[in-house]
């Protein structure tokens, strides 16, 4: 046990599973770095150094790839159906655009199309989210698109502890898993056991208990929701925060249980507002907990625009603790 970063938690999960199971391989663009060059190997360990050191420990089971996402993501999927358990890195979630067929027409559908005869134990790790001034093609929150596809499991961890436990669960899972890492969470610190452990999918974390209002959220937004809840507590508004952890499967019971208790719901999703996780949850609650609602549901999301480059605009684009707080206050005061 010790305090570790989100990044270390992921690296530790990969190393533990590679040690435990030699079928686990790791591949992706520059996850080693320096392949074929005259300088040092393991020069990068991924663009942010998350996989650094794995090559030294596991050699050929850590593979740099050409910049050919269709080929190497597809290859990971193929290898998964034929005996390996690949963890493949899609550097930025935005790059799903160049390899989506392999993910949603191939990996996601094998089991169903083949009458239950295939298993595709692949994990696609990918970085997402705004805040790094990385502009429109490197900043999106595209987990709703994966969540939409039956056959895929989608994980969006918010803490180092969850990242490690969910990644090990993902590697041991026999279905394709999209593991989405918010790029601004890599330096987040928290207590993480040294040993391997697993967190089941479809089990939300109630990160704060409260009586007045439910905030359902995920990823980096969990931390902004906590910040908002602390400010709201000062005004006597007691928020419960449900961190989904996985969007597919999704812990509907945890959401409904909380809303039935509080009667008010704010859903916070960093994704664009149409057909995202917030709309999904709002529909769920409107359908299944309508009678419990004391106020309309509020969604706090990014706007319906691409991610802007300029910091002045990007800071407006990303939902803030203040915007969550404002939505919560509106509900708390609704018809009161």
């Amino acid at each position: 046990m010790g305090i570790k970063t989100f990044q270390q938690a992921i690296s530790e999960a990969l190393a533990l599973e590679m040690e435990r199971d030699e079928r686990v391989i790791v591949m992706g663009e520059d996850i080693v770095g320096g392949s074929g060059a005259d300088g040092e190997m393991d020069a990068w360990g991924g663009p942010l150094g998350v996989t650094k050191g794995l090559w030294g420990k596991f050699g050929d089971r850590v593979l740099d790839t050409p910049i050919t996402e269709s080929a190497f993501i597809g290859a990971a999927i193929g290898a998964a159906t034929t005996g390996l358990r690949p963890v493949v890195e899609l550097m930025f979630i935005d790059f799903m655009g160049v390899c989506f067929d392999q993910i949603f027409n191939q990996a996601a559908k094998f089991r169903y199309m083949f009458g239950g005869k295939a298993e595709t134990p692949v994990v696609i790790r990918t970085m997402f989210g705004a805040g790094l001034r990385a502009a429109a093609q490197h900043s999106q929150c595209l987990y709703p698109l994966f969540t939409h596809i039956p056959g895929l499991k989608v994980v969006v961890p918010s803490t180092p502890y969850d990242a490690k436990g969910l990644l090990i669960e993902a590697i041991r899972d026999n279905d394709p898993v999209i593991f989405c890492e918010h790029k601004l969470l890599y330096t987040q610190e928290g207590e993480v056991p040294d040993e391997a452990y697993t967190i089941p999918f479809g089990e939300a974390a109630v990160v704060r208990e409260g009586e007045d209002l439910t905030i359902v959220t995920l990823g980096r937004m969990v931390h902004r929701a906590v910040e908002a809840a602390e400010a709201l507590a000062g005004s006597g508004i007691d928020c419960e925060i449900v961190d989904l952890r996985t969007t597919s499967p999704m812990d509907e019971d945890a959401i409904l249980e909380s809303v039935e208790n509080t009667g008010r719901l704010v859903v916070v999703d960093e994704a664009n507002p149409r057909c995202n996780i917030a709309t999904d949850i709002s529909a769920l609650v409107a359908q299944s907990a309508f009678d419990a609602l004391k106020a309309p549901i509020r969604m706090v999301t990014a706007p319906h625009s691409p991610v802007p480059f300029s910091d002045a605009l990007e800071d407006l684009y990303i939902p803030t603790a203040a915007s969550i707080e404002a939505a919560a206050r509106e509900l708390a005061e609704y018809r009161s």
Partner: peptide
């Protein structure tokens, strides 16, 4: 180089 990977490798 494609990022940090040599064209000789890729």
């Amino acid at each position: 180089y494609a990022e940090a990977t040599s064209v000789k490798y890729s």
